[in-house]
């Protein structure tokens, strides 16, 4: 597909999906009313205005930004590790954030009794996730300066992830029932945790990360040829690798802190982008990955709301349903897919 048609088409799709996210939810609001609310006109029910503007709009924007951020992290990691099956959770950044959250929810929740429940979504959880993610990232970066092989670094990332998971299991084992419950809920993933007031901060944090990714497009292209070729083309490979890890770590940590560990978007979306564009050149694939990441996240958020008032299911129950088939398709067809060969 031509890039020329791709970008307008995906922006149009994003607009449609945002509107769908505003209209579709556990409370039925007619499209006409949604349109009126968006244009600032009064509608029959006061509560509709509140729901659309204070709940659904920030949720849709959060999904859009988070999807773009996770997908971009995935793309950068796949190129940085020369491995099309790398994803943001592979570095252990996700589980590092998880450990931070577990420490806050389970230890604090355990010692203050029932307080664990109220802590979810609070500043302490955010700080915990951020600190946990950045600590794991620090460890990976420290290893990156010693271990030269990308594959080995990838395996170290996976091992660090296992260690943090084991610490989380241990914390869960000793925690109170309330603590375990609120941690489990956070772990299911959710785009609704960000209020209108928090949105500008979240948006700025994601924006900084995405801008960083755009600035890394040129060295990312050189890295497609492998580290030695990149080095011979004048890339300072070590510095670029640290920059890539910082950028992906930041994006993953911010999203994970606010929305929980969301699976599969980072792993699968870069493949969709490459397959649709028929290219692995980042000048085209990186913007496409951002857009498709947003589209997929909006779509998943929509699918969380079951039809017929059956309620809302967790985000992480939906993302694998789209992500796993993509990865299986890619693996089964890898002989036919150019970027694998």
């Amino acid at each position: 597909m031509r890039t020329r048609y791709f970008i307008p088409a995906s922006i149009a799709l994003i607009v449609v999906l945002v509107v769908a996210n505003l209209a579709w939810g556990s409370v039925a609001i007619p499209l006409r009313a949604v349109a009126d609310i968006c244009m600032g006109n009064p509608v029959e029910k006061e509560s509709w205005t509140f729901i659309v503007l204070q709940s659904r709009l920030p949720q849709a924007l959060t999904a859009l930004l988070s999807g773009a951020a996770l997908a971009t992290s995935g793309l950068m990691l796949q190129t940085a590790f020369n491995n099309p099956l790398a994803g943001p959770s592979i570095l252990g950044v996700n589980s590092g954030a998880g450990l931070g959250v577990a420490l806050v929810m389970l230890l604090l929740g355990g010692s203050i009794g029932g307080a664990g429940f109220f802590l979810s979504g609070s500043l302490a959880v955010l700080a915990g996730a951020m600190v946990g993610a950045l600590v794991v990232l620090g460890i990976i970066i420290a290893f990156a300066s010693v271990v030269k092989s990308n594959l080995m670094l990838l395996i170290i990332g996976i091992m660090v992830g296992y260690i943090t998971s084991s610490a989380i299991s241990l914390l869960n084992f000793f925690a109170t029932a309330e603590g375990v419950f609120s941690y489990t809920v956070w772990g299911l993933g959710d785009f609704s945790g960000i209020s209108v007031e928090q949105l500008p901060l979240f948006g700025t944090a994601i924006g900084i990360g995405l801008l960083g990714a755009i600035l890394l497009i040129k060295p990312l292209n050189a890295l497609l040829l492998g580290e030695r070729y990149a080095c011979n083309l004048g890339v300072n490979v070590r510095a670029i690798r640290v920059a890539l890890l910082l950028c992906t770590g930041w994006l993953t940590a911010v999203v994970t802190a606010y929305c929980g560990p969301i699976s599969f978007i980072g792993l699968a979306v870069p493949h969709i982008a490459r397959l649709l564009l028929g290219s692995s050149h980042h000048t085209r694939v990186l913007p496409a990955t951002m857009l498709i990441g947003g589209i997929v996240a909006l779509l998943c958020n929509l699918l969380c709301v079951l039809p017929g008032g059956l309620g809302i299911i967790p985000l992480n129950a939906v993302t694998p349903l789209f992500g796993a088939p993509v990865i299986i398709y890619v693996i089964v067809n890898q002989r036919k897919i150019q970027y694998f060969n």
Binding site: L224, L225, Y229, H281
Partner: peptide
């Protein structure tokens, strides 16, 4: 240089 390095450049 022209090297023997493995890479993921097949999609270029």
């Amino acid at each position: 240089t022209v090297l023997t390095e493995r890479n993921v450049a097949g999609g270029l």
